[in-house]
Design a protein around this nucleic acid. Structure first.
Lengths: 121, 121
DNA sequence: ATACTATATGACCAGATGGTCATATAGTCA
DNA sequence: TGACTATATGACCATCTGGTCATATAGTAT
Protein backbone atom coordinates (compact mmCIF):
# COMPACT_ATOMS: atom_id res chain seq x y z
CA UNK A 1 0.00 0.00 0.00
CA UNK A 2 1.21 3.49 -0.77
CA UNK A 3 0.92 6.39 1.60
CA UNK A 4 -1.67 8.11 -0.56
CA UNK A 5 -3.97 5.15 -0.26
CA UNK A 6 -3.41 4.92 3.49
CA UNK A 7 -4.22 8.59 3.88
CA UNK A 8 -7.38 8.24 1.80
CA UNK A 9 -8.54 5.36 3.96
CA UNK A 10 -7.85 7.32 7.12
CA UNK A 11 -9.69 10.30 5.71
CA UNK A 12 -12.64 8.04 5.06
CA UNK A 13 -12.56 6.99 8.69
CA UNK A 14 -12.26 10.53 10.02
CA UNK A 15 -15.94 11.38 10.15
CA UNK A 16 -18.60 10.55 12.71
CA UNK A 17 -21.21 9.42 10.20
CA UNK A 18 -18.78 7.20 8.30
CA UNK A 19 -17.42 5.68 11.50
CA UNK A 20 -20.97 4.80 12.49
CA UNK A 21 -21.67 3.33 9.06
CA UNK A 22 -18.60 1.12 9.29
CA UNK A 23 -19.59 -0.03 12.74
CA UNK A 24 -23.09 -0.90 11.54
CA UNK A 25 -21.89 -2.71 8.42
CA UNK A 26 -19.56 -4.69 10.62
CA UNK A 27 -22.58 -6.44 12.12
CA UNK A 28 -24.39 -7.16 8.85
CA UNK A 29 -24.87 -5.79 5.38
CA UNK A 30 -27.44 -3.01 5.17
CA UNK A 31 -29.23 -0.98 2.53
CA UNK A 32 -29.35 2.80 2.41
CA UNK A 33 -32.80 3.15 3.95
CA UNK A 34 -31.79 1.08 6.93
CA UNK A 35 -28.69 3.18 7.46
CA UNK A 36 -30.69 6.39 7.13
CA UNK A 37 -33.05 5.28 9.88
CA UNK A 38 -30.39 4.23 12.34
CA UNK A 39 -28.27 7.29 11.69
CA UNK A 40 -31.31 9.57 11.65
CA UNK A 41 -29.90 11.30 8.62
CA UNK A 42 -31.32 11.97 5.17
CA UNK A 43 -30.84 9.74 2.17
CA UNK A 44 -28.74 12.20 0.20
CA UNK A 45 -26.24 12.62 2.97
CA UNK A 46 -25.92 8.91 3.69
CA UNK A 47 -25.55 8.12 0.00
CA UNK A 48 -22.69 10.58 -0.29
CA UNK A 49 -20.84 9.10 2.63
CA UNK A 50 -21.35 5.65 1.16
CA UNK A 51 -20.02 6.87 -2.17
CA UNK A 52 -16.85 8.00 -0.44
CA UNK A 53 -16.41 4.73 1.41
CA UNK A 54 -17.04 2.87 -1.84
CA UNK A 55 -14.49 4.96 -3.71
CA UNK A 56 -11.84 4.14 -1.13
CA UNK A 57 -12.67 0.47 -1.33
CA UNK A 58 -13.79 0.22 2.28
CA UNK A 59 -17.28 -0.92 1.36
CA UNK A 60 -18.80 -2.76 -1.55
CA UNK A 61 -22.38 -2.77 -2.75
CA UNK A 62 -24.75 -5.10 -4.53
CA UNK A 63 -28.14 -4.38 -5.92
CA UNK A 64 -31.07 -6.50 -4.84
CA UNK A 65 -34.22 -5.33 -6.58
CA UNK A 66 -34.74 -1.71 -5.68
CA UNK A 67 -32.44 -1.85 -2.71
CA UNK A 68 -28.70 -1.56 -2.77
CA UNK A 69 -26.95 -3.37 0.02
CA UNK A 70 -23.62 -2.20 1.37
CA UNK A 71 -21.07 -4.36 3.11
CA UNK A 72 -17.53 -4.06 4.43
CA UNK A 73 -15.06 -5.14 1.75
CA UNK A 74 -12.83 -7.99 2.74
CA UNK A 75 -9.34 -6.45 3.03
CA UNK A 76 -6.81 -7.78 0.54
CA UNK A 77 -3.87 -5.94 2.05
CA UNK A 78 -2.57 -6.30 5.55
CA UNK A 79 -2.52 -2.54 6.04
CA UNK A 80 -6.18 -2.31 5.06
CA UNK A 81 -7.03 -5.04 7.54
CA UNK A 82 -5.07 -3.38 10.33
CA UNK A 83 -6.73 -0.03 9.81
CA UNK A 84 -10.19 -1.53 9.60
CA UNK A 85 -9.63 -3.63 12.70
CA UNK A 86 -8.54 -0.62 14.69
CA UNK A 87 -12.01 0.76 14.01
CA UNK A 88 -14.19 -2.32 14.33
CA UNK A 89 -12.31 -3.78 17.27
CA UNK A 90 -10.52 -0.87 18.88
CA UNK A 91 -13.54 1.41 18.90
CA UNK A 92 -16.19 -1.24 19.54
CA UNK A 93 -16.73 0.11 23.04
CA UNK A 94 -17.85 3.56 21.87
CA UNK A 95 -21.19 4.51 23.35
CA UNK A 96 -22.50 5.78 20.02
CA UNK A 97 -21.55 2.51 18.36
CA UNK A 98 -23.39 0.43 20.91
CA UNK A 99 -26.42 2.67 20.73
CA UNK A 100 -26.53 2.36 16.94
CA UNK A 101 -26.36 -1.41 17.09
CA UNK A 102 -29.13 -1.45 19.67
CA UNK A 103 -31.27 0.78 17.50
CA UNK A 104 -30.66 -1.44 14.51
CA UNK A 105 -31.74 -4.46 16.49
CA UNK A 106 -34.98 -2.74 17.49
CA UNK A 107 -35.76 -1.66 13.96
CA UNK A 108 -35.21 -5.23 12.79
CA UNK A 109 -37.53 -6.53 15.50
CA UNK A 110 -40.32 -4.23 14.32
CA UNK A 111 -40.41 -6.09 11.06
CA UNK A 112 -38.55 -5.71 7.83
CA UNK A 113 -40.58 -2.82 6.50
CA UNK A 114 -37.82 -0.29 6.48
CA UNK A 115 -38.18 2.61 4.15
CA UNK A 116 -40.98 4.47 5.89
CA UNK A 117 -40.09 4.30 9.54
CA UNK A 118 -41.93 2.21 12.10
CA UNK A 119 -44.93 -0.01 11.50
CA UNK A 120 -47.62 0.95 9.05
CA UNK A 121 -51.22 1.46 10.18
CA UNK B 1 -13.41 7.25 24.49
CA UNK B 2 -16.16 9.19 22.82
CA UNK B 3 -16.72 9.28 19.11
CA UNK B 4 -15.66 12.91 18.86
CA UNK B 5 -12.26 12.06 20.29
CA UNK B 6 -11.90 9.06 17.99
CA UNK B 7 -12.74 11.20 14.98
CA UNK B 8 -10.24 13.85 16.02
CA UNK B 9 -7.51 11.25 16.33
CA UNK B 10 -8.35 9.82 12.93
CA UNK B 11 -8.35 13.29 11.43
CA UNK B 12 -4.91 13.78 12.89
CA UNK B 13 -3.78 10.61 11.16
CA UNK B 14 -5.34 11.51 7.82
CA UNK B 15 -2.48 13.52 6.39
CA UNK B 16 0.74 12.44 4.70
CA UNK B 17 2.99 14.75 6.69
CA UNK B 18 1.50 13.77 10.02
CA UNK B 19 1.62 10.07 9.18
CA UNK B 20 5.29 10.45 8.40
CA UNK B 21 5.89 12.35 11.63
CA UNK B 22 4.24 9.60 13.65
CA UNK B 23 6.30 7.00 11.90
CA UNK B 24 9.51 8.91 12.62
CA UNK B 25 8.64 9.55 16.25
CA UNK B 26 7.93 5.87 16.62
CA UNK B 27 11.64 5.19 16.20
CA UNK B 28 12.89 7.87 18.58
CA UNK B 29 12.01 11.31 19.89
CA UNK B 30 12.98 14.14 17.57
CA UNK B 31 13.11 17.91 17.58
CA UNK B 32 11.51 20.14 14.99
CA UNK B 33 14.66 20.78 12.98
CA UNK B 34 15.31 17.09 12.58
CA UNK B 35 11.75 16.52 11.40
CA UNK B 36 12.01 19.43 8.97
CA UNK B 37 15.08 17.92 7.38
CA UNK B 38 13.74 14.43 6.96
CA UNK B 39 10.38 15.66 5.71
CA UNK B 40 12.00 18.28 3.52
CA UNK B 41 9.40 20.77 4.68
CA UNK B 42 9.68 24.18 6.29
CA UNK B 43 9.65 24.84 10.00
CA UNK B 44 6.32 26.64 10.06
CA UNK B 45 4.50 23.82 8.36
CA UNK B 46 6.01 21.11 10.54
CA UNK B 47 5.32 23.10 13.69
CA UNK B 48 1.67 23.41 12.75
CA UNK B 49 1.30 19.70 12.15
CA UNK B 50 2.99 19.04 15.48
CA UNK B 51 0.61 21.46 17.17
CA UNK B 52 -2.31 19.48 15.82
CA UNK B 53 -0.87 16.17 16.96
CA UNK B 54 -0.14 17.70 20.35
CA UNK B 55 -3.68 19.04 20.67
CA UNK B 56 -5.11 15.59 20.01
CA UNK B 57 -2.79 14.06 22.56
CA UNK B 58 -0.97 11.89 20.04
CA UNK B 59 2.41 13.44 20.76
CA UNK B 60 3.98 15.14 23.74
CA UNK B 61 6.87 17.57 23.85
CA UNK B 62 9.63 18.59 26.19
CA UNK B 63 12.01 21.45 25.95
CA UNK B 64 15.74 20.82 26.10
CA UNK B 65 17.60 24.10 25.83
CA UNK B 66 16.63 25.71 22.57
CA UNK B 67 15.27 22.51 21.11
CA UNK B 68 11.86 21.07 21.72
CA UNK B 69 11.68 17.31 21.43
CA UNK B 70 8.53 15.54 20.38
CA UNK B 71 7.62 11.97 21.22
CA UNK B 72 4.64 9.66 20.83
CA UNK B 73 2.43 9.85 23.90
CA UNK B 74 1.94 6.58 25.69
CA UNK B 75 -1.73 5.67 25.08
CA UNK B 76 -3.84 5.55 28.22
CA UNK B 77 -6.93 4.22 26.49
CA UNK B 78 -7.21 0.99 24.61
CA UNK B 79 -8.81 2.72 21.64
CA UNK B 80 -5.92 5.15 21.42
CA UNK B 81 -3.48 2.26 21.48
CA UNK B 82 -5.36 0.35 18.79
CA UNK B 83 -5.50 3.33 16.46
CA UNK B 84 -1.86 4.17 16.98
CA UNK B 85 -0.79 0.58 16.47
CA UNK B 86 -2.68 0.37 13.21
CA UNK B 87 -0.40 3.16 12.02
CA UNK B 88 2.92 2.21 13.50
CA UNK B 89 2.53 -1.51 12.90
CA UNK B 90 0.00 -1.82 10.11
CA UNK B 91 1.63 0.77 7.90
CA UNK B 92 5.24 0.03 8.79
CA UNK B 93 5.82 -1.43 5.33
CA UNK B 94 5.02 1.78 3.49
CA UNK B 95 7.78 2.77 1.14
CA UNK B 96 7.71 6.40 2.26
CA UNK B 97 8.00 5.33 5.87
CA UNK B 98 11.04 3.20 5.22
CA UNK B 99 12.66 5.94 3.16
CA UNK B 100 12.12 8.46 5.93
CA UNK B 101 13.70 6.18 8.52
CA UNK B 102 16.65 5.59 6.23
CA UNK B 103 17.08 9.30 5.69
CA UNK B 104 16.94 9.90 9.44
CA UNK B 105 19.64 7.32 9.98
CA UNK B 106 21.90 8.99 7.43
CA UNK B 107 21.38 12.42 8.93
CA UNK B 108 22.26 11.04 12.34
CA UNK B 109 25.37 9.45 10.95
CA UNK B 110 26.56 12.80 9.55
CA UNK B 111 26.84 14.13 13.07
CA UNK B 112 24.40 15.80 15.40
CA UNK B 113 24.62 19.26 13.89
CA UNK B 114 21.08 19.47 12.66
CA UNK B 115 19.61 22.88 12.08
CA UNK B 116 21.63 23.95 9.07
CA UNK B 117 21.79 20.90 6.90
CA UNK B 118 24.92 18.87 6.35
CA UNK B 119 28.34 19.52 7.76
CA UNK B 120 29.69 23.00 8.18
CA UNK B 121 32.82 24.17 6.38
C1' DA C 1 21.30 45.03 27.28
C1' DT C 2 22.01 42.86 21.92
C1' DA C 3 22.47 39.16 18.67
C1' DC C 4 21.42 34.62 17.50
C1' DT C 5 18.82 30.16 17.30
C1' DA C 6 14.73 27.13 17.66
C1' DT C 7 10.09 27.01 17.71
C1' DA C 8 5.25 28.81 17.71
C1' DT C 9 1.61 31.42 15.81
C1' DG C 10 -1.30 34.92 13.16
C1' DA C 11 -2.84 36.35 8.53
C1' DC C 12 -3.99 34.90 4.30
C1' DC C 13 -5.42 31.91 0.33
C1' DA C 14 -6.80 28.01 -2.56
C1' DG C 15 -8.90 23.80 -2.30
C1' DA C 16 -11.41 20.11 0.25
C1' DT C 17 -15.26 18.75 3.19
C1' DG C 18 -19.99 17.92 5.06
C1' DG C 19 -24.63 19.16 4.76
C1' DT C 20 -29.07 20.30 2.31
C1' DC C 21 -32.12 20.78 -1.53
C1' DA C 22 -33.51 19.58 -5.98
C1' DT C 23 -33.12 16.51 -9.67
C1' DA C 24 -31.63 12.29 -12.19
C1' DT C 25 -31.28 7.36 -12.57
C1' DA C 26 -32.74 2.71 -12.31
C1' DG C 27 -35.61 -1.06 -10.90
C1' DT C 28 -40.65 -2.64 -9.94
C1' DC C 29 -45.39 -3.03 -10.73
C1' DA C 30 -49.67 -2.26 -12.99
C1' DT D 1 -46.36 2.95 -21.44
C1' DG D 2 -46.71 5.60 -16.48
C1' DA D 3 -46.62 5.70 -11.43
C1' DC D 4 -43.89 4.50 -7.63
C1' DT D 5 -39.68 3.44 -4.83
C1' DA D 6 -34.72 3.35 -3.68
C1' DT D 7 -30.61 5.38 -4.56
C1' DA D 8 -27.21 8.55 -6.77
C1' DT D 9 -25.68 12.96 -8.02
C1' DG D 10 -25.30 18.07 -9.22
C1' DA D 11 -25.56 22.79 -7.34
C1' DC D 12 -24.76 25.47 -3.64
C1' DC D 13 -22.92 27.15 0.82
C1' DA D 14 -20.49 27.50 5.22
C1' DT D 15 -16.71 25.65 7.36
C1' DC D 16 -12.34 23.30 7.66
C1' DT D 17 -7.71 22.19 5.95
C1' DG D 18 -2.91 22.52 4.48
C1' DG D 19 0.51 25.52 2.91
C1' DT D 20 3.32 29.87 2.89
C1' DC D 21 4.95 34.17 4.57
C1' DA D 22 5.82 37.23 8.19
C1' DT D 23 6.13 37.92 12.93
C1' DA D 24 6.30 36.65 17.92
C1' DT D 25 8.19 34.03 21.70
C1' DA D 26 11.67 31.88 24.42
C1' DG D 27 16.14 30.21 25.45
C1' DT D 28 21.42 30.90 24.77
C1' DA D 29 25.54 33.45 24.49
C1' DT D 30 28.15 37.65 24.56
Amino acid sequence: MRIKKARQMLQSFADDTRLRIINLLNSRELNVSELCQVLESNQSNVSKHLARLRFTGIVGDKRCGLNIYYYLSRPEERAHEELLNSITVGLAGLKTFKQDLQKLKELRKMGTNFGKGGSKK
